[in-house]
Structure formats: C-alpha cells, structure tokens
C-alpha cells in the first residue's frame, strides 16, 4: 500500500481579519503519529478548524495538500471524502439525530464520494454489523447508537463518540483536537487505545493536538512540534514532550522573541474576545 502524505505549507489563517497562523509548515505521512503542543491561544485549534475548512477561518496564504491534492479549494465534506478527519474539542450536538443515523449518512458519503444526495444509503444490515464491531472494540454499550448525537453526553461519551466516528470513517489522516481535555485518566486511556486500534488497522496518520503529556503516554508520537505565536518553532522527537513537561515554555519564549511577541498579543486578543462574549 502506498503511503499518502499530508503537507501543510506556509499556512496563514485569520479570524475576523486577525491573523492567527503565520506560516505553518508540517508534513505527515500515513502511519506516523505527530504531536502538536503549545500554550493556550497559540493557534492550535485554529489549525484544526482551518484544515477542515470552517467558514470563519480565512486562509490568506499557503497550501494544504493530501497526496498532492489541494484541500483548501474543497468544501469541508469534500475534504472528509478525500480522507481528512477532525475529532473536535467541543463536538456539536444534533438533537433528534441518532448516532447510528448520523454515522450511516457519514459513512455512506465518505465511502461513495460520487454519491448524489437522495441516493441509497449503505445497507442497514452491513452498517449495523460493522458499527457493532467497532463499538465493541471501544467498549461501548450498543444502546449508545440509539442516542441522539452528543445530546446530553458526558465529556467522555462525546470523545468516545468522536473516536467511534474516526473508527468507522477510517480516514487517511486524523487531527485530534484536545481529545484529552476534560477527561479523567481512565477516559483518556480508553479514548487513546481506541485511536491506536484504528490507526493500526488503517494506517491513519495522526496529529494529536494537546496541552498535556498524559495522552501522549498512550498515543506515542514519533514527531513532536511546538506551536508558538502562530508558527511551528521547534520540531523534534518524543524528548520534546518531556522537556516541555519539565521546563514549560519559558525557554521557547527566550529562544524565539519574535514569536513570543506574537504569542502575547494573541493571548491578549483571546482574553479580550472572551470578555466580549
């Protein structure tokens, strides 16, 4: 099997006219696990939303290619069909739509990219069988499939539902946006093991976005990047995780004064934005 490449090149992204990402470069191959770490407001979530094509995130420069195909020209659903997946930090609930029904639509479209709306969904029998297997794998109660998507879910249930979708959609590349946030350590382990199983099964390239080391104890990255002031300032191996855990970001500040200025400004901006809400 040929290995696909996700290539982010000089990506600049703004929200409401304010530039957040200032030229991000990152290359991920299928089967690799990358971790992206950085303080609050460094632009981590902006990167994940921009990759998926959220309309509020304006790309002013750069490119994102999946196996040579430009993603930035595609609608979010077309990116999903091309093999990109985002596990949301805050998954949206869709009242009245069951997990099973939602997933059946998603799986049908991702596996049949040429399908037109209104054409048949994948067979209910096959779908149910496959979903039950995946849920088993994640230690989920079959009853879960009948609940309305993310409606009244606990933090752990939401994240597990994201991993179930990842597992069913089998993307070439998955971005996990703070999938560990708000979870206790047991939940982190369960979710992480779920991700590992999928990644091993379909050789998904994984980008784990996180503040914390603990999820990386379970999903072991081969590559670690530090996002600071809207750009990736350091890339290395797993030793970077331990360094950040021990020393924090002070040394990053000192080493990259220009990025530190941008980082301060972004943090202030983010704080002002929060006040405005």
């Amino acid at each position: 099997m040929s290995s696909k490449v996700l290539k982010i090149d000089n990506l600049h992204v703004a929200i409401a006219g304010k530039e957040i990402l200032k030229g991000v470069n990152l290359t991920i191959r299928q089967g690799e696990v990358h971790a992206l770490m950085g303080p609050n407001g460094s632009g981590k979530s902006t990167l994940s939303y921009a990759l998926m094509g959220h309309p509020n995130y304006e790309v002013s420069e750069g490119s994102v290619t999946l196996d040579g195909r430009e993603m930035l020209e595609l609608e979010p659903d077309e990116r999903a069909k091309a093999g990109l997946f985002l596990a949301f930090q805050y998954p949206t609930s869709i009242p009245g739509v069951t997990v099973a029904n939602f997933l059946r639509h998603a799986v049908t479209n991702v596996r049949n990219p040429e399908r037109k709306e209104g054409e048949d969904l994948i067979s209910m029998r096959d779908f149910r069988k496959e979903m039950r297997e995946r849920m088993d794998e994640l230690g989920m109660d079959p009853e879960f499939a009948r609940r309305y998507l993310n409606e009244g879910f606990s933090g752990g249930e939401k994240k597990r539902a994201e991993v179930l979708q990842l597992s069913m959609l089998q993307p070439a590349f998955a971005v996990l946006d703070e999938t560990d946030s708000g979870l206790d350590i047991d939940a982190v382990r369960i979710v992480a093991e779920g991700v590992n199983k999928v990644a091993a099964r379909v050789s998904t390239g994984v980008l784990v976005i996180t503040h914390y080391k603990r999820i990386l104890d379970y999903i072991k990255p081969g590559f670690v990047h530090i996002l600071y002031g809207g750009r990736i300032v350091e890339s290395g191996g797993p030793e970077l995780v331990d360094l950040l855990e021990k020393e924090g970001y002070d040394w990053v500040r000192e080493k990259y004064p220009e990025a530190a200025r941008d980082e301060d400004e972004m943090e202030q901006h983010a704080a002002a934005g929060q006040l405005a809400h």
């Binding site: 998926m52 094509g53 959220h54 309309p55 609608e75 979010p76 659903d77 990116r79 999903a80 069909k81 997946f85 985002l86 949301f88 998954p91 949206t92 869709i94 009242p95 009245g96 739509v97 029904n101 939602f102 997933l103 639509h105 998603a106 479209n109 991702v110 709306e117 309305y148 979708q165 959609l169």
Partner: peptide, 28 residues
C-alpha cells in the same frame, strides 16, 4: 451553522446535513 459544519466535516454535504437536522428537529 455549527451543526451543519459538524455534519459536513463527516462527509455529509450541506443540503443533506440540513435535511438530517430538520428531521432531527421534529424527532422529539
């Protein structure tokens, strides 16, 4: 719009996402 984006990020096109959301709206 957040629901629409969420569904689109899973490969469901806009019109189909709206159909699902509307159907869900009546579910209760």
């Amino acid at each position: 719009e957040d629901m629409i984006f969420y569904a689109r990020s899973r490969g469901v096109a806009r019109e189909e996402a709206i159909r699902l959301i509307v159907e869900g709206f009546f579910a209760n």
